[in-house]
Every structure is written in structure tokens, then in C-alpha cells.
């Protein structure tokens, strides 16, 4: 009976703090995505549009680790029994991906474009079912700088 109460408390704590953290994170993601709209980022191997002679190209990366909260983990385990999409983890990974790309962009605010964007996901504490799992997303790509200044460089 005590076990039940403890689990319930953890689930409730996980839910409230997890929800709070998530909505704050999404708010920050939306704002920063808007702010970095001027920096085109593609998975293309070549720069988009007409871009002047490239002066510099360098590897840039953004990395983030986000932890699962107790509620999400509980929900995912319940899902394990029935099958189906683990909706609880969808927002977690969505946030991680977008945060990683944002960090990548923030590392090179003066670049003209970021090309060849790649994303990699890995789970930390893999296989260790007893511990709270967390997910890592690594975004990497090539930032290219051209002679033209940034405002002209944006391929229109």
C-alpha cells in the first residue's frame, strides 16, 4: 500500500514539474527559432541559391541532453504493455532535436548558411532499466561564410 502511495507521489511530481519544464522549454524554442529564422539551415550538400565566393567553412555542432521525467517514463512503460506510439516521448525528442539545432545555430550567428545538417540521437543509460533514462541529440553541419555580408548572403 505504501508502495502505491510512493509511486503515485512520484508520478504526480513528475507530471507537474515535467509539464512546467516542457512548456517553458517550448516557449524558449519558439522565441529562438523566430530569432534565427534568417540563418538558412539545410541538409543539402551544396549551398542554396547564389552565394558569393566562400571565405570560410567550418564544422559546427549543437548538443543537448534531456532527461525523462518519472511520469513520462511510467507512461512509456505502460505503453510497452499495449504497444502503439509512445506519445510521452515524442515531445521529449522533438524538444531535444530543436534545441540541438538551435544551439548549433547559436554557435555561428554570423554564418551565411548551414549546410549538410545531420542529427544523431542516442539514449544515455542504455539498457539500464532501473535508472531514469535521458536522451542526447547531437546536431552537426557545415557553416559557410561568404564575402557578401549577411543580409545579402541570404539567398533570395
Amino acid at each position: 500500500m505504501e508502495n502505491l502511495a510512493i509511486v503515485a507521489v512520484f508520478i504526480a511530481l513528475g507530471y507537474f514539474f515535467g509539464r512546467m519544464a516542457e512548456s517553458r522549454h517550448y516557449q524558449s524554442i519558439h522565441e529562438r527559432e523566430q530569432a534565427f529564422l534568417h540563418l538558412p539551415t539545410t541538409s543539402s550538400k551544396k549551398p542554396l541559391g547564389h552565394i558569393g565566393p566562400i571565405t570560410q567553412a567550418r564544422l559546427v555542432q549543437g548538443n543537448v541532453v534531456i532527461s525523462v521525467d518519472y511520469f513520462k517514463r511510467f507512461l512509456a512503460t505502460l505503453r510497452n504493455i499495449f504497444g502503439g506510439t509512445i506519445q510521452a516521448y515524442e515531445t521529449l525528442l522533438d524538444r531535444a532535436r530543436r534545441e540541438a539545432v538551435l544551439r548549433l545555430k547559436e554557435s555561428c550567428p554570423d554564418a551565411d548558411q548551414i549546410i549538410n545538417l545531420r542529427l544523431e540521437t542516442s539514449s544515455i543509460s542504455k539498457g539500464d532499466t532501473e535508472r531514469i533514462g535521458s536522451v542526447e541529440v547531437l546536431a552537426y553541419g557545415t557553416a559557410i561564410y561568404s564575402q557578401q555580408n549577411t543580409s545579402q548572403a541570404a539567398p533570395q
Binding site: 508502495n3 502505491l4 509511486v7 512520484f10 517514463r73 511510467f74 512503460t77 510497452n80 504493455i81 532499466t129
Partner: peptide, 10 residues
């Protein structure tokens, strides 16, 4: 299954 869930079910 996960220990917290089996605890709850038990």
C-alpha cells in the same frame, strides 16, 4: 516489466 509498475500492480 518496470519495477514501479509491477509494484503498483502487485
Amino acid at each position: 516489466a518496470n519495477s514501479s509498475i509491477s509494484q503498483m500492480l502487485t
